[in-house]
């Protein structure tokens, strides 16, 4: 019978002890424990979210990096192509200029050669004329020392002259 009869003293002390336990543990144990457990859970959830976000960003970053690289390559190719074109244009122009210059120089040379030649010919002609006159003088002075001879020459000359 004693087993199932609660004793007053034990009820009294148990109530006090348990009430004390509730107060003390509630204030000094469960409150901080529950709070930090919750905080930790939040922190872990946040960290996971952030990791997911970072991964997403990394993916995007990688993608944009590749895009950028591709663009840069294209740009480089463009620039190179342009440069090649410019180079070729410059060379072409230079060649054309050089050709023109050469032509001009050759033309000049030809002209001056022509002038010189003309001058030379004129001089030669003059000299030949002088010489001819001198020769003619000498010949004449020699030939024409005799009258017949003079006559002969005049005839011959006249014969040669073509009147037309």
């Amino acid at each position: 019978m004693e087993l199932v009869t609660p004793s007053l003293g034990l009820i009294f002390w148990m109530t006090i002890a348990f009430f004390f336990l509730l107060l003390v543990l509630g204030k000094y144990a469960w409150k901080p424990v529950m709070k930090s457990l919750k905080e930790r859970e939040h922190r872990i959830a946040d960290a996971l979210n952030e990791a997911e976000k970072a991964r997403e960003e990394m993916k995007e970053l990688k993608f944009s990096n590749e895009e950028l690289l591709k663009q840069a390559k294209e740009e480089r190719d463009d620039i190179l192509r342009e440069a090649r074109k410019v180079r070729e244009a410059i060379i072409e122009e230079a060649r054309e200029k050089a050709n023109a210059e050469a032509d001009r120089i050759i033309e000049n040379a030809r002209q001056s050669i022509h002038y010189e030649k003309m001058a030379a010919i004129t001089e030669l002609k003059n000299q030949i004329a002088v010489l001819s006159i001198e020769i003619a003088e000498k010949v004449l002075s020699q030939e024409l020392s005799k009258d017949d001879k003079q006559k002969q020459l005049i005839d011959k000359m006249l014969g040669e002259v073509n009147f037309n």
Binding site: G9, L10, F12, A17, V24, Y28, S36
Partner: peptide
């Protein structure tokens, strides 16, 4: 009326102290 500190009361007190020590210790750790 018997309000003695019996064996069970002492045991309850020991248990209460043990619980307080254990859980306040780990609460501090937290």
């Amino acid at each position: 009326l018997d309000f003695s500190i019996t064996k069970n009361v002492v045991s309850i007190f020991i248990c209460v102290i043990l619980l307080c020590v254990v859980f306040i210790t780990i609460a501090r750790r937290y």
